[in-house]
Amino acid sequence: MNKESSLKLTAFFRTAAITALIVASLATVQAQPSGGPYGPVRQLWTVSQNAGRIIYVAPDGDKNAPGETLTAPATIETAISKAVTGDVIILRGGTYRTGDLLLNQGIIMQPYLDELPVLKGSEVASQWRDLGNGLWVTKWDRLFPSAPESWWQRLRSGKDTPLHRFNDDMVFIDGRFLQSAGFEGEVDESSFFIDYSTGLV
């Protein structure tokens, strides 16, 4: 191979390497996130001219209020129970702690102007009593029934799948999920126990 051929090959490989680098760079650029915005995009919501009845709701709304005005909003549960196809439910900003909502598919739910309503299917327990030794207890009346699946038998399955694993209740402390315990004596800082006979957590 003469010097000229060697130079041509070197130039070819250099060009190929640069091309591969550019292609890789473009692929990397395309794989990058778009730069946002992420999460809910703030926008100004308006009510359609063809809307039926308008019902205003708020996290601290009155369940007995008709929700006809911003100053006397209803609860979201009340609004959904009264709304019919074509109605619009306007949600004021804030956190709605609710669940088991049965929605009519013809109902429109939208924020009030640019406010940000948030629906959460959890409730906050605030009446805790200190039992000492780091244990706290509260009365709770919204517990799921603790019932095992039909295949479960205490003698055969109780050790590997204890009965308390069938409860669907969840407890979070400052956003941290706690595991369920089989009885009070197992409770530590990472677990909880529910006495379904008394409704105590």
Rank of each mutant, 00 (worst) to 15 (best):
V187K: 02
G99W: 07
P117W: 01
V118K: 10
A20L: 15
R92D: 06
D87I: 05
G36L: 08
V23P: 00
K120I: 10
P162L: 05
K63C: 00
G36N: 07
N133C: 01
D87F: 02
I22A: 15
I90P: 01
T10N: 06
P117N: 08
L131P: 04
P148Q: 03
T161R: 03
N64T: 12
L7A: 14
I18S: 11
Y38M: 04
D168W: 04
A11E: 08
Q179M: 12
N50Q: 14
R142H: 14
R129Y: 02
K159V: 15
V124Y: 06
V201D: 00
T15N: 10
G121A: 05
V124L: 13
G132M: 01
W45D: 07
L155G: 04
R92T: 10
F193L: 03
V118E: 12
D195E: 13
G94H: 04
D100P: 00
I108L: 10
N2F: 02
I108Y: 00
V201K: 03
T69H: 02
Q49S: 15
L119N: 02
V57G: 02
T198R: 07
D174N: 15
P162Y: 04
V47N: 03
T19M: 11
E68T: 14
E4C: 02
S25T: 14
S146Q: 15
P162G: 07
E68I: 05
S48L: 08
R42S: 14
G199D: 03
E186S: 12
N50F: 08
V84N: 10
S197E: 14
T69A: 02
Q105L: 10
S157W: 09
D160R: 11
L178Q: 06
W152G: 09
A83D: 03
Q49M: 06
S150K: 13
S122I: 12
R14F: 12
E186T: 09
F144P: 01
W128P: 08
S48N: 13
K63Q: 08
L119G: 04
P40I: 11
L155H: 10
L143H: 01
S48I: 08
L7F: 09
R142A: 12
I54C: 05
F192P: 01
P40N: 11
K3W: 07
F183H: 14
N50R: 11
S126V: 15
P111C: 02
L143G: 04
A31Q: 09
V187E: 03
Y96S: 13
F193K: 03
D114S: 14
L131H: 06
D160E: 14
L102K: 14
D195V: 07
D160F: 08
